[in-house]
Design a protein around this nucleic acid. Structure first.
Lengths: 158, 158
DNA sequence: GCTAGATAGTTTCACGTGCAACTATCTAAA
DNA sequence: TTTAGATAGTTGCACGTGAAACTATCTAGC
């Protein structure tokens, strides 16, 4: 009879680890600034990229449901962390970009989060970290999980 | 100015991967049998272990909130996939164990899920798989995420 | 230029989950 | 024996999220 040790089952381990890491991060820093995970994803995408993006683009890049992004954008607008300008070429979509306040928050948050990530990985050697990231990358690719900016653009333009 | 590419940020990658894997599994197999993730966790714990367990024990092992386990147990009882017997030594808790029907479902499900896990990891060589699991183990340990049966028992007995 | 279908974004709804309060039971100490 | 505090399990509540419906706008084909 086939058996399965849940504690060694990869999907379970990933789910447990992701949940733990996520609450650790959001609990300590993100909640501190009054923004939640989807809002952080919007801000992170806008902060990293130079040009303004559409909500659709953010949704595709972060693989987050468009309704979730929509609500996050509404909140960020309300708190004046981002602003949106109409797109003359296509009046269905809006160009989103961080405000000065949003950029300030972003710049405060980044070092904290990067430090957190380093803490999390500090139990691995440099080589192990590299291998771990590479393995993760292979799995992501095989699951067609990686959405490059190019692909997103291509999709956006279909 | 510090920047952060969300797509290379480990917490984000883990969250995205876990979500994808989870929906892939639950969508294709678990939903097919009308049970959801918490119910599967209960069944997996009971099926793997020989002796009956308490809900508390399952909650600790799987790091799933006790209210979630409670609801999962209620559903599984309703569908006669598990049964519970009073514990004479401590009448607060119940001993949970799979029924014949539950065991049958478990045995049908296991090979499918294991095959799925293999598919997911098939993009890695044997050595890479081993290294990946080891790295994951180190991170889990450093985050105090690993709950052994012994520890759970110790905690249960405080 | 019109119409059909696609797309961006919003909103309503149903549902699953964590938190906190609650009941029942157990343990330890006075 | 009584009482205070801990524990097992359940339930009400608030909240976040995905699916689906909806509006407005765009594109392609006629």
């Amino acid at each position: 009879m086939a058996r399965l040790d849940l504690l060694k089952f990869m999907p379970f381990r990933l789910s447990r680890l992701a949940a733990e890491v996520s609450t650790a991060l959001s609990g300590e820093y993100i909640e501190q600034y009054g923004i939640d995970v989807p809002q952080w994803r919007v801000l992170a995408t806008l902060g990293f990229r130079e040009e303004p993006c559409s909500a659709q683009f953010i949704s595709q890049c972060t693989r987050t449901h468009k309704s979730t992004i929509s609500r996050a954008v509404t909140e960020l607008l309300k708190h004046k962390l981002i602003e949106r300008v109409e797109n003359e070429d296509d009046r269905r979509e809006f160009r989103l970009q961080p405000t000065a306040k949003g950029t300030r928050l972003y710049e405060e948050l980044i070092p904290r989060l990067l430090r957190r990530e380093q803490d999390m990985l500090s139990c691995l050697s440099a080589q192990e970290r590299k291998d771990f990231a590479a393995a993760l990358g292979k799995i992501e690719t095989s699951l067609d999980l990686v959405q490059t900016s190019q692909q997103a653009k291509a999709k956006a333009a279909y």
